Simulated assay, not measured.
Amino acid sequence: MGNIINEIKEALAVLSIPEKAEFFPKFFKTGKGEYGEGDLFLGVKVPDQRIVAKEYYSKIDLKELGELISSKYHEHRLTALFILIHKFEKTKTAKEKEEFVTFYLNNLPYVNNWDLVDSSCYKILGRYAFENRQDELLRNLSNSEEMWYKRIAVVGTMYYVKKGNFELTKEFVTYNLKHVHDLMHKANGWLLREMGQKNENELINYLNKYYKDMPRTCLRYAIEKLDEEIRQDYLKGRI
């Protein structure tokens, strides 16, 4: 097992940029009491991680991947998720897809920052739930007390939105509309905006019912792509 893991870690180490390693802890809020507290960074850019993932996804099994995704280094975990996405998208068997989803769910504690969540959840869990009519996989996470799980749930509905199915997104946004953390406000607003890109009337109808109760950040994200006059009407409460 160690050989392939060491190869991946060495490949990432070579791509490390000292300036990025210094910047990322601040960008991802790793200070005491912040949402990424204690996370460690090598300083590898995302496109470079994707290249490594593409090179190694067919060479590593899930047991080995479990070692990589549980690493204390952020880039190891994100690269592991990119590898898992490749495996999930490349397989043609339902059994393997289920195994990959189970692996993802079993390793949720390591999907613990917004980029880890947003890069992976809808491509794996959201797609699987949609294609297999297993909304409860996402609903259980939305109902969790863990903020990252709630974000996984709502961002996971991106796959539904892309398919023109909006009900689960609206359900999760409404349920967590008053969540205390701005990372949920941003996620909720983002998914509403994506819904509006697909069907503006769906967004308008939702906003007309809930916009006065939305945190300001959520509202700003949700209305970002609307015409300026309509945006101002919502921002100034004229609707």
Rank of each mutant, 00 (worst) to 15 (best):
Y206N: 02
P109T: 13
N6I: 04
Y221N: 02
K123G: 00
V111C: 07
K20N: 14
E34G: 04
L219N: 02
M147V: 11
K162Y: 11
E10A: 14
S71L: 07
H185P: 01
E171H: 10
C121G: 05
E22Y: 03
K170T: 03
C218V: 06
A129H: 03
V101M: 08
H185S: 04
K186F: 10
A11M: 03
M147E: 11
A187G: 06
G43A: 10
L15M: 14
K236Y: 13
G196K: 02
D182Q: 07
C121S: 14
E229M: 07
R133V: 03
K72C: 02
L235Q: 12
T30F: 06
Y211R: 09
Q49E: 15
T102K: 15
A11N: 13
I223M: 06
A222Y: 05
N165W: 08
K9G: 00
S71M: 09
L62N: 04
N140Q: 15
A53D: 02
L207N: 11
R220A: 02
L183A: 05
Y221I: 06
T30D: 12
K90F: 12
K72D: 13
A53V: 01
G2F: 06
A187W: 06
L203D: 05
I85P: 00
Y160A: 04
L105F: 07
M214T: 10
G196M: 10
N205L: 14
V101S: 02
